[in-house]
Computed example of a mutant assay.
Amino acid sequence: MAASPAQPITPELRAWIIEQAATGISAPALIDAMTHSGWREEVAVDAVEQVLRGHLDQLARQQGLPPAAAVPEPALDESPRWLDAGDRQVEVLMSLANPRVVLLGNVLSQQECEALIAAARPRMARSRTVATATGGEEVNDDRTSDGMFFQRGESELLQRIEQRIARLLHWPIENGEGLQVLHYRPGAEYKPHYDYFDPAEPGTPSILRRGGQRVGTLVMYLNDPPKGGGTTFPDVFLEVAPVRGNAVFFSYERPHPSTRTLHGGAPVIEGEKWIATKWLREREFT
């Protein structure tokens, strides 16, 4: 599989990449093999990404899945330790490719966490979820928390955090919903669910008129519950501990379980949990 760095992606190379990936060889291992064969690393990375993404899109079409959409994405191509979020440096703690999950540290300061809780506390009410059957909202037994929504940009604090998120995830501010703050008391939880809107539900078209599908989620932890309250991803047996100032980001390029973004809020065992969630849409959210 020798190749010169300038060589285009040939049918033979495409078939080799797909064949190797199908046997379980990881993308980094494929890139390493290509660089040892004479490819420049950046060319090998682009070739592997292009071939595998195209192959997955082809498989999705064959299976009748919805088309893939552009998604928010931190700049992780060179495996940086820190990301520039404008007014602060954000730490990259963990990155998972499938599903796309990135754990980030130092997203919010202690003072910002406390200020969000203080601003949200007087406005808390029993959490509601979007009712895709009708396009409205409803109380859901799977979500036993209290919550509230800020309007986008309603305060200097919100504006600062929204600008930071936009820069961090390379996604326009106007494509984000207003920040939601949730409060979980002992025993409260949010059972596993998807954040995208189910295309099969009758109320989804009216929801999508406000900005298209959700394509990404950022969950920011505002305090440190002593036990429980993690964010779980059952499809990959991953649980993210809630640590004040940290955040977990995940994206989903199509509204389908193939994204493996099933997730939930584990029950709080001791203490309480406060989080702030930012949902990101395909287009401007109005």
Rank of each mutant, 00 (worst) to 15 (best):
H183V: 05
N223T: 00
L179S: 04
Q213E: 01
S206V: 12
G38I: 09
I117A: 03
P28E: 07
Q58F: 10
Q159D: 07
R260I: 10
E270N: 08
L13K: 05
H55V: 09
Q111Y: 15
L116C: 08
R260W: 12
F197T: 02
Q7N: 08
E19I: 10
D46M: 12
S206A: 14
A125G: 11
Q89M: 13
P11A: 07
F233P: 00
L96K: 05
V45F: 10
E189H: 12
M94P: 07
I161W: 00
G136V: 07
L83Y: 06
R209S: 14
A47D: 09
P72K: 00
M220P: 01
P234Q: 04
S95C: 01
G135P: 13
G265C: 05
V219I: 10
W171K: 03
A75H: 14
H36C: 14
Q180A: 07
E137T: 15
I269L: 09
V101W: 06
D235E: 14
P192G: 02
G54E: 00
S95G: 03
Q111W: 15
T144M: 01
I269F: 13
V43D: 13
A2G: 14
P80D: 03
F249E: 02
A29K: 13
D198K: 03
T144L: 04
P11R: 01
P205L: 05
A6G: 14
L208D: 06
W82L: 08
P186N: 06
A29I: 14
R164H: 10
L30I: 06
D77P: 08
D142K: 13
E253S: 15
I173P: 03
Y190C: 08
G211N: 04
H55Y: 11
E49R: 14
R214L: 06
V248A: 00
G229E: 03
Q89E: 10
Q110L: 15
L76V: 04
S4L: 14
W171M: 03
S251H: 07
V102N: 02
G229Y: 01
H55I: 08
H36W: 10
L103T: 07
R40N: 14
P28F: 10
D87E: 12
E162Q: 02
L222H: 04
R40K: 14
I207Q: 03
E162K: 08
S95Y: 05
I31Q: 07
Q63I: 07
L157P: 10
M220T: 01
W171C: 00
